[in-house]
Computed example of a mutant assay.
Amino acid sequence: MDQESHLHSGDLSVVIGGTFLRLRDAVTMTISNTRQRVMRSFIVFFFTLLLLCLAVFLYGSFYYSYMPMAAFSTPVHFHYRTDCESPTSFLCSYPLANITLMRNKKNVLTFGQAYQISLQLDMPESPTNQELGMFMIKTTCFSQEGGQVASSARSSMLRYRSDLLRTMGTLLFLPAFLTGATEQKQVLEVELFSDFTDDPYAPSATAVIEILSNKVQIYSSQLYVHAHFTGIRYFLFYFPVVSALVGVFSNFIFLSVLFILSYMRPLRAEWKPEQAIGQELQTTVNSPHTASSL
């Protein structure tokens, strides 16, 4: 009886030990599989994030290299001669302004891009400007070598307002006029070029604006350059979010395909020698049978 109980207890301990061993192996295998999955997930996440950053960088580089400046403005300062002999003349010469079309030693205008160039004039509603009537504005663009690139001539004048309308406006806005919040002036917008395209062989570096009147009175003036986008540039400028999503997604797909192909290439290189070795072993195994049959 003692021997049987001893054998029974020994078998029980063996069973319990085997169960613990299997449980330990299962836990070890589970931990190992979990660790491998975590490492694989981390590697996949890292490479996905890296490809996404590269896709964003490529799209940003393309956008800032392909898209020109959408708008450009600069103040216009007119100058004229004052050494005339006639005391009745207001100005001795026509008001003239020389404007640079370069910023940081680079041309503001992009080759092949159409621009609208306009001049904004702040003119007082003085009797002189009212009696002036129409006046001409001449614009000439020059290259850095001094050659003429383009020129235009546009006419403009103050909007007509009757004496009664001016009197009513003065009485209505009298508090604003007295406090200096507003002024009796008109803002004229003169379109100098409606569809200006710069010459790639002789890009415009300066623009000369001349008002062909020696009686005109101006508070201040501003030059505005607006780009007319078409095609891909129109889509990139007016739909920036959609274009960014499409561009980044396309770059991400392209980079992912390149990464997968570059990853599969060494696997193919390793698989071909193994296949060749297997074929050689098969031929060596089959060769004795062929010899014996002969």
Rank of each mutant, 00 (worst) to 15 (best):
Arg161Leu: 15
Asp198Thr: 14
Ile43Val: 13
Thr230Glu: 10
Gly60His: 09
Pro288Ala: 03
Ala227Pro: 06
Ile253Gly: 06
Met67Thr: 09
Thr206Ile: 10
Lys215Ile: 09
Ser262Cys: 11
His79Trp: 00
Gln222Ser: 08
Cys84Tyr: 04
Ala202His: 14
Pro200Ser: 10
Gln279Asn: 05
Thr182Leu: 09
Leu171Gly: 00
Leu223Glu: 01
Pro124Gly: 02
Thr197Ala: 03
Thr88Gln: 10
Leu174Arg: 15
His8Gly: 03
Leu165Met: 14
Glu210Asn: 08
Tyr160Met: 05
Gln148Val: 14
Thr30His: 08
Ser93Gln: 00
Pro288Phe: 00
Ser156Gln: 04
Asn33Ser: 12
Phe47Lys: 06
Ser13Gly: 04
Glu189Phe: 08
Pro75Lys: 00
Ala202Gln: 12
Pro240Thr: 06
Met67Ser: 08
Ser93Trp: 01
Phe62Arg: 06
Glu280Gly: 00
Leu96Phe: 09
Tyr160Ala: 05
Asn98Ile: 09
Thr88His: 11
Ser162Phe: 06
Met168Gly: 00
Tyr238Glu: 04
Ala181Arg: 06
Ala202Tyr: 10
Asp25Gly: 03
Ser73His: 14
Tyr224Val: 03
Thr110Asn: 08
Leu261Cys: 12
Ser32His: 11
Phe193Pro: 01
Ser194Asn: 14
Leu178Cys: 03
Gly146Tyr: 01
Tyr64His: 14
Ile277Lys: 14
Thr230Asn: 06
Ser86Glu: 15
Gln186Trp: 06
Phe196Asp: 02
Ile232Asn: 04
Gly147Lys: 12
Phe72Glu: 02
Thr290Cys: 09
Arg24Ile: 01
Pro124Thr: 00
Asp122Trp: 11
Thr110Pro: 00
Lys185Pro: 02
Met29Asp: 12
Glu4Tyr: 13
Thr30Glu: 07
Ala207Tyr: 02
Ala55Leu: 05
Ala150Ser: 15
Val108Thr: 11
Met123Val: 12
His8Leu: 08
Val187Pro: 02
Ile137Phe: 05
Leu281Arg: 14
Ser89Tyr: 12
Ser220Phe: 03
Gln120Tyr: 04
Thr100Tyr: 07
Thr28Glu: 04
Ser32Met: 11
Glu280Ile: 03
Gly146Asn: 04
Thr128Trp: 02
Ser250Leu: 13
Leu258Gln: 14
Thr197Pro: 02
Pro203Ser: 03
Arg40Pro: 01
Ile218Trp: 05
Ser93Asn: 04
Ile260Ala: 11
Tyr63Ala: 09
Gln184Asp: 13
Met102Ala: 07
Asn214His: 10
Leu165Arg: 14
Leu51Asp: 00
Val225Asn: 01
Tyr234Phe: 11
Met29Glu: 13
Ser5Lys: 15
Glu145Trp: 03
Val56Thr: 05
Arg22His: 08
Ser262Arg: 13
Glu85Met: 09
Ser287Phe: 13
Tyr160Gln: 05
Thr88Ile: 10
Thr197Met: 12
Leu96Gln: 07
Asp122Asn: 15
Phe235Glu: 07
Ala205Met: 03
Ile260Leu: 14
Ser65Ala: 11
Phe259Asp: 00
Ser256Gly: 07
Ile218Phe: 02
Ser41Lys: 09
Gln186Leu: 07
Arg37Leu: 10
Lys138Cys: 01
Ala26Met: 05
Thr167Phe: 07
Pro175Ala: 09
Glu145Thr: 07
Thr100Ile: 04
Phe142Leu: 13
Leu49Lys: 07
Leu12Pro: 01
